[in-house]
């Protein structure tokens, strides 16, 4: 059995009467990338806060790098790196000072700090900017600096809370490539949260779908999607959806039918999209449902989310 870097059992956090996390179980093997995918407010950040010792669980237990997050909090802190959801940087310090102060907090010797900073500036491509005040940085540079800070102490596990929130596509792809490099070349374990489906799909070896404080589904992105059906035919239209749905569901090759009311969309999971398309769409015409748009694709994590929660996950 592979070593587990992050374990959680029945993790729960309650603030007053609000249950932010309602019993989450995790088992993340060392050297893998795990993504917690879910909408804002699902409990992802609270989960990360408990795993990184910032919040004490109301119930349940968790361990990181083999240490208990409550009883051995300092050991956990020493072996992890964290980046937070909001950008958390001192604008009046230079990038180099931010990294250096971080290293000093962890008691890294000066020589080690110098060397680490040189390596990290290279990795996240901050170049000359490392000696400029953080207030002159763009959003993407700030994120890269934070990533470098999270890596400064050479952690065994890195926690990234919404690592690309608010970034433009180019910077997002950049961050993704650093994350992949770290995982591949150093065998770093990463746990990240995201509400972007493409991010989870692009990075994660395993995805946990979180909704209302619970883990509603878990698996590799491929398995999760494949469990719904081989292909999905998305039919957007107006009129009597219910009638159309019941007719389509009766077809022998249809695995399941789901609706996304907000987008006026019917999702039909079938064994082969291109072969069944005509028959499915044909059912609409006679049933008071006017088709406006049809697409065929493989199911994605968004469809998995809809399947498990009954709601669509929107960016």
């Amino acid at each position: 059995m592979t070593e587990l870097a992050i374990i959680a059992r029945g993790l729960r956090k309650q603030y007053g009467t609000v249950i932010a996390v309602d019993g989450i179980d995790l088992a993340v093997p060392a050297g893998t990338i795990y993504a917690l995918l879910g909408p804002n407010g699902a409990g992802k950040t609270t989960t990360i806060n408990m795993l990184t010792t910032l919040a004490v669980p109301t119930a349940g237990e968790a361990s990181v790098c083999g240490y208990d997050v409550v009883r051995q909090a300092d050991r956990v802190r020493a072996c992890i790196g964290v980046t937070f959801q909001d950008i958390v940087l001192d604008a009046d310090l230079t990038g180099r000072e931010v990294l250096d102060i971080h290293g000093r907090l962890y008691r890294q010797p000066a020589a080690v700090r110098r060397q680490r900073i040189a390596e990290l500036v290279d990795l996240v491509q901050l170049g000359e900017a490392i000696d400029r005040r953080v207030r002159t940085y763009s959003g993407g540079m700030k994120r890269r600096l934070e990533l470098a800070r999270g890596l400064m102490t050479d952690p065994r596990a890195l926690f990234l809370d919404e690592p690309t929130q608010g970034l433009d596509p180019q910077n997002r792809v950049g961050i993704w490539s650093y994350i992949r490099t770290l995982n591949r070349e150093r065998g770093l374990t990463l746990l990240l949260t995201t509400h972007y489906m493409d991010e989870a799909e692009a990075l994660a070896s395993r995805v946990g779908i979180v909704d209302r404080g619970r883990l509603v589904a878990e698996g590799t992105p491929g398995d999760l999607a494949a469990s719904l059906g081989a292909d999905v035919i998305r039919v957007r239209g107006s009129g009597d959806q219910a009638h159309f749905v019941s007719h389509v569901a009766a077809l022998p090759f249809v695995a399941r039918v789901e609706t996304d009311p907000e987008a006026a969309m019917v999702l039909v999971y079938v064994d082969s999209g291109s072969r069944r398309l005509v028959e499915v769409v044909g059912l609409a015409s006679g049933n008071g449902f006017v088709v406006e748009d049809v697409t065929v694709s493989r199911p994605g994590l968004g469809d998995v989310f809809l399947h498990h929660t009954g709601r669509a996950l929107r960016d």
Binding site: T53, R77, F84, D86, H102, Y106, R149
Partner: peptide
């Protein structure tokens, strides 16, 4: 307020 405290809190200090 800006969350910088979290950097300290997550550190082994």
């Amino acid at each position: 307020l800006r969350g910088i405290l979290k950097e300290y809190l997550a550190a082994p200090i």
